[in-house]
Design a protein around this nucleic acid. Structure first.
Lengths: 359, 359
DNA sequence: GACCAGTACTAGAGCGCTCTAGGTGGTCGA
DNA sequence: TCGACCACCTAGAGCGCTCTAGTACTGGTC
């Protein structure tokens, strides 16, 4: 070998990123002590701490995440699959960041995109040693999710899943749609259509909620094929225009509602005078001043918080309020029952609904 | 210590994730050989390769990304900051994945979200040892970008930046808006307003493109304050309705155009009969059948490809077509001049533009 | 002065990989 | 018969951290 350097002196490449070793030499202390200081762990005097931090700052030292993760017993990493460009996913992840921080965890993102499916995204998360998985409205089969959940603690958000070991945090979709129908009936509507979500995860529940709500009020269900995008809503609107309009429509989600609204308005239908429209999600879209959509809100922040709490609980074997028994990842396939949390939705009444014409 | 185990035998925790060592023992070969096989590196016979892979598969072995990154001389990692929920960013990242794959690199994402600013996102990328940085329409100051670019190869997408060492890949925004104006003038419009992007990165260029295009045609500029969101477009529409409408509007982007469109249509203005509207980006939004927006398209895929090629070139010191001199990260602050690539936009004519009424 | 507890610090063994240098056995030309 | 050479494989030293075990030094207590 041309040249091997012992720990205490190495080739002085000024462009190498500084390591613990560099800081330690410069500050005249051991690597271990620098580690203690930068981690903020107890065991260093205030004066040393200050000096080491000053040197670290001066050298522009930043700990290498990979080395740290490798050396640490615990990764304290939670992996999330996120569908880029989707407003709901964005809201969820935004809620996840403060939540993981509270528990001393870090978040690692893996995107699903055209050409990069969910399986691929999850594999990346496993490779990065995630201790827990958060799947936002995944489209994987229940059996696939069950297999995954046997490997490590897994939480599914915003989708109903019946699989062992999978924690679920979702909104009571049926109740939400029920609230929308109740609201419309309360305004005097008797002819209420539902533009559904087809085969999408939550579509079944929302359809059921709609059906039982209208029946409860002695009305006939009026189902229309829809989907999750504006395009689906637009298609449904054309369908309804051909059939003859109801006085109110409950849509699968906000995007669908917006597509429907747009086609109706362009055709000269007045909203809410001629027809009332309700969305689902209370996304940014619904809040736009000119859209001003009555919609059913999901408490995304709370969903994020609960999913993290649930996973951390399963991983640590205790909640941070009780830091008595944190003995490393406690996940064992034989683990206890897993919780399904169903959050109540809340109707947000805005300007797209009113009493029907002639009342 | 209660018990330390040498490399060749360790506590048989069946829930530990399998390592190279486990595969090696099971297959009766050395760790180094397993490493060679799983990396697909040359130096193993076909039969051994098959046997090792079979064992790896049987144990469910997956290489630990952190260990791999730590041990490898080169990280071959490109970091991207991505604004979650933004369609343009989503398109860019979707284009980035196949591009990095072609060059044998991996992508690491870091999100900007409410409560998590760009600086934080970039720091995470540095901690993860990214060899290059891709910033999509960053809002950092040019000086900040320059400082960053001195640390490691940095590419900025979709924003004009004048900073040493920063590679820039962007669309000729002024040309794009010019094409839109030319199109409208060609249809016979003489009164063309521009809803601008305020202080946003590309807004200046688009404003300039608008101004010089209308002047070229001997018309007067009609600037209106806008922004990047639907809300901004809606506000601009109300403003225009108060002023008296032009016969055509060129908007800062598609979202802005959609907001504007919506308010106009709700007011009873017919598009394109009463007014023509042009957007910018050719996003999914513009393609929706009921929106059907004439817009200026950016070649996002090509931007992604070019940014990656540029970074890889600077990092490797050579392009993959010429794998002669790959001698590790070659980035030195003294490095040569850095390229700015300006791609031509292309006008996509759809249904939101037509000849003005009375012609 | 011996003993103890506590604080401040260090040595050194890993974490799971990669990669260089070197070992082994077989084939082949001289 | 002998090296030269190749194909295949192994040993072992890191990568930059964390963390356990242990050392040195202080000050109080009987």
């Amino acid at each position: 070998m041309a040249d091997t350097f012992p720990r205490t002196s190495r080739p002085a490449d000024p462009f190498r990123r500084p390591t613990l070793q560099d800081v330690a030499e410069r500050a005249g202390v051991s690597r271990a002590l620098v580690s203690i200081v930068v981690r903020g762990a107890p065991g260093a005097s205030a004066s040393t701490r200050a000096r080491v931090l000053a040197v670290a700052d001066e050298l522009g030292y930043r700990p290498d995440a990979h080395a740290r993760l490798l050396a640490r017993q615990r990764a304290r990493l939670l992996g999330v699959t996120v569908q880029l460009g989707h407003p709901f996913h964005a809201d969820v992840v935004a809620g996840l960041y403060p939540a993981v921080e509270r528990y001393g965890y870090e978040l690692v993102l893996s995107a699903t995109a055209p050409g990069r499916d969910e399986r691929r995204a999850v594999e990346t998360l496993l490779d990065y040693r995630s201790e827990g998985l958060i799947l936002v409205a995944p489209d994987a089969a229940e059996t696939t999710l069950a297999v995954l959940a046997r490997r490590l603690p897994t939480a599914v958000l915003a989708r109903r899943v019946q699989a062992e070991q999978v924690s679920v945090v979702r909104t009571a979709d049926d109740v939400g749609v029920g609230q929308a129908v109740d609201h419309l009936v309360g305004l005097g509507h008797r002819s209420i259509a539902h533009v559904d979500g087809g085969a999408l995860p939550a579509a079944e529940d929302r359809r059921d909620g709609y059906r039982s709500a209208v029946r409860r009020h002695g009305l006939d269900p009026w189902p229309v094929a829809g989907g999750q995008s504006e395009e689906d809503g637009a298609r449904a609107a054309r369908e309804l225009l051909a059939q003859g309009l109801p006085t109110a429509v409950v849509c699968f989600n906000d995007r669908c509602a917006v597509g429907l609204l747009d086609v109706l308005i362009r055709t000269g239908v007045r909203v809410p005078d001629d027809i009332s429209v309700v969305g689902f999600d209370d996304s940014q879209l619904a809040r736009l001043s000119h859209i001003n959509l009555t919609t059913v809100g999901q408490d995304v922040e709370r969903m994020a918080e609960l999913a993290v709490a649930e996973l951390v609980d399963r991983i640590d074997g205790c909640l941070p309020e009780n830091p008595a028994a944190p003995t490393g990842p406690a996940h064992r396939p034989a683990g206890g029952p897993v919780r399904e949390t169903v959050l109540p939705p809340r109707l947000v009444v805005r300007g797209s609904t009113s009493r029907p014409a002639g009342r």
